[in-house]
């Protein structure tokens, strides 16, 4: 799997289910700098909708892309401020 983004860090939440993908994404984002991109790799199909809703309702983050793989759902989240 490849992406066009320079990802700063990768968060592996494979096997984990709601609410962990969102909560851990938020925690990882908090540790990054503005402009950084976090790659989140999940197996929870609910993470597609949940990460999208979270990014929409949260200040300072932007969801760049979501990639549905064979067994994984990968999300690219940018910290904007």
């Amino acid at each position: 799997m490849s992406s066009e983004y320079d990802t700063t860090e990768t968060l592996d939440v494979k096997g984990q289910s709601c609410p962990m993908p969102v909560v851990k994404t938020k925690q990882a984002i908090d540790d990054l700098e503005a402009g950084d991109v976090l790659e989140v790799v999940a197996t929870d199909s609910g993470s597609m909708s949940d990460i999208q809703g979270w990014a929409k309702g949260t200040n300072g983050v932007e969801l760049l892309e979501q990639v549905e793989g064979e067994d994984t759902y990968t999300h690219y989240v940018k910290k904007t401020d």
Partner: peptide
């Protein structure tokens, strides 16, 4: 607990 921890992730 699920709603609380998720809402906290929304700040």
């Amino acid at each position: 607990l699920i709603l609380a921890s998720t809402a906290a992730a929304f700040d």
